[in-house]
Design a binder for these strands. Structure first.
Lengths: 251, 251
DNA sequence: TTCCTCATATATGTATACATAATTACCGCT
DNA sequence: AGCGGTAATTATGTATACATATATGAGGAA
């Protein structure tokens, strides 16, 4: 009853979850910092019950860690943790691609993936890729990966991939924006798109091992992007997820 | 204030979670059935708040599914879902074994795994394996898999494996008890133990690909056990997890 | 000065009351 | 007799009040 019209659409729990996630990823809540329920109530404007729900969900999401004595703290990640999360996602996406290849995909189901591939081609072929192009690349890339995952037709696997990709630095598009300011940008984009093309081809020809291997290697591009971005320390602001890293990157 | 001494140790939330999980796995709550919060309050004896917490956690655990209009229902699994979950666990454990092999494990860290291996040997070498032996095999097998997972030294991966193994039919020991009444029991046990031995050897010699491959194949033993158990329809009561399966096995 | 203890305060865990949305049942109409 | 609409009931989402456990600070004694 206390709500105005514009907010009525989403639940208080979701609103609290979004607000807290934003606070964490933006770095305003530092890794290791304890999250006060009362404080969260003040900043989010909702009561303790939905705040607690949101905290539990964020813990399952991997952004928070339960404190043994009670409550939650912001999780801290090492660079190794991030690289492992990327490798993990690659392994899972590799399994999805192998399932799709081994089990076969109807031409009708493969259609959307090929369309997505063609859309990506449009972007990659322009030589100086504009920053706006990178933004839309992020969305289209996410769509390609989502479609590919679905082709596994395996709900348990899709669920696990979603969970693994929930951490922003592990998502398929996690470090794409870092490319936009790197000299190697265009090369990496071309290679990534080649991976996309190969995996579609492998699925179509039911080459399971090939599809799996290329998706694993594809994920490692994200690891390369991360390392490159950490070398040239500039433009780390493009990667809010790095606010969660343990020691080095805090400005 | 309302608690007696013996119960004070665990929180109401955990108690509700355990009670509800037991209700689900025992099949008293059927797949697809909506879980009434009020009903859960009556059966568990705790109030709505911890019940809701438990429901959220069980959803993240994979046993419940959120209903769009609100509330939760018991999740239903197909036989394919179960087989995929097993394959998924194998892939993740394979990654853990590969990490351990590639990154190297100190002799001191490998010691507990070798001890666990030796303990398992003791059991496997008796020819007619007693039913009690199978029970302790379940615990020792779980320990071996947990130790192996830890050797990856990768918190994100360990976390994902724990999540994947949370579903009872996907856990490393999920279908071991089914073996106890199967004629092929001893053979499968011997093969499984050989896998254990090989993965330790592969890790010790830093053979990443071999370690990964054998753990994948190892998980497929569980799939074989499942299929065998579903053929000889006897003793399905040893596998309470199958209460979650969609169509066939409901008595 | 330092450490231990006790008291106070604040935090989380739990219970319940209230409001709103959804589902169901019943009645009327076609 | 079947379908649709409305009302009533029940369910979930939210807020808050209460109890308990933990953490912190102050005071006293060694």
């Amino acid at each position: 009853m206390s709500e105005r019209d514009p907010d009525r659409a989403v639940s208080q729990t979701v609103r609290a979850q979004l607000a807290l996630r934003d606070l964490i990823l933006s770095g305003r809540l530092r890794p290791g910092e304890r999250i006060s329920e009362l404080g969260a109530v003040e900043t989010t404007g909702v009561s303790r019950t939905p705040v607690r729900m949101a905290l539990v969900r964020l813990e399952e999401e991997g952004l928070l860690e339960a404190i043994p004595s009670g409550g939650f703290m912001v999780k801290a990640f090492s660079e190794r943790d991030i690289l492992d999360s990327i490798e993990l996602r690659g392994v899972l996406e590799g399994l999805a691609a192998r399932f799709a290849a081994e089990r076969g995909v109807s031409a009708r189901d493969l259609e959307p993936l090929k369309e997505s591939l063609a859309e990506l081609d449009q972007l990659v072929t322009q030589d100086p890729v504009s920053v706006e192009a990178f933004s839309s690349y992020v969305a289209m890339n996410a769509r390609f990966h989502a479609l590919l995952t679905e082709l596994s037709h395996s709900p348990p696997l899709i669920r696990q991939i979603d969970r693994a990709s929930a951490l922003p630095f592990a998502s398929p598009s996690g470090f794409v924006m870092a490319q936009s300011v790197l000299p190697e940008a265009h090369q990496i984009l071309i290679i990534a798109q080649d991976h996309h093309r190969i995996v579609v081809d492998a699925i179509e020809n039911r080459e399971g091992a090939r599809a799996e291997a290329v998706m694993r290697e594809h994920a490692r591009l994200a690891a390369r992007n991360l390392r490159l971005a950490l070398r040239n320390r500039t433009h780390l602001d493009l990667l809010p997820a790095l606010a969660l890293i343990r020691s080095p990157v805090t400005e």
